[in-house]
Amino acid sequence: MSISIRAIDLSCQFGQVHAVDRANFTVSVGDFVAVEGPSGSGKSTLLNLIGGLEPPTGGRVEVAGTELSTLDERERTTFRRRHIGMIFQLYDLLPTLNAWQNVAVPALLDGGKLKDLQASSTELLKRVGLQDRADHKPSELSGGEQQRVAIARALMNDPQLILADEPTGALDSVTGDDILGLLQSLCEDGRTVVMVTHAARAAAYATRSLRMLDGAVTEPAAV
């Protein structure tokens, strides 16, 4: 199994606070990993380090064999856009664009033309079960539907890795189940998903857990 993420003594310190403290782990392609831990344990910082949104203050992290901190800002942005899809708790859709236009955003930023992207965006909306909502603005969609749009957007440039920060945190439990099932199906298609969550029921959808406590990352032994 090839390696999607490799962290070696990965650390991130803010002042005196060790948000991530010498983390060592690997994630294989196709893994669905839950990052669990109490509030303030460093989960989101770890996700930002993997996604290259935060530079490590020690150690390193490689995504698909590339060490992000060796790239300059522009290369890092391009790498992120092509290889990593991100999903957030509050969807972060652009309110003035409709669903398929939101899905097209990563390809637009990569130099694509909107008119050329309608077919592929609509196809991705179909993949997440939202083909009937392609022309709706975010304000016309439910929370679960907005998160589906965000997942379709994360898939736009066909990234191998999906990073999700509390993707069901703002959803009711049934809608949350649907979203988690969708993330699970992405892994079955050969993508890797790393999901930060504080909810055990969400973490149970993943195939592995990384536990964080005061910046330290451990993987509970199989029982």
């Binding site: 099932g181 699970q184 055990a200 029921r201 973490a203 149970a204 959808y205 993943a206 195939t207 857990s209 509970p220 032994a221 199989a222 029982v223």
Partner: peptide, 20 residues
């Protein structure tokens, strides 16, 4: 507590898979 947590989580994974 850690061992119990891991065992609970393993069981939750089994039941989640049954549910799926």
């Amino acid at each position: 507590l850690e061992a119990q947590r891991a065992r609970h989580m393993a069981r939750m994974r089994e039941v989640t898979s049954q549910k799926r």
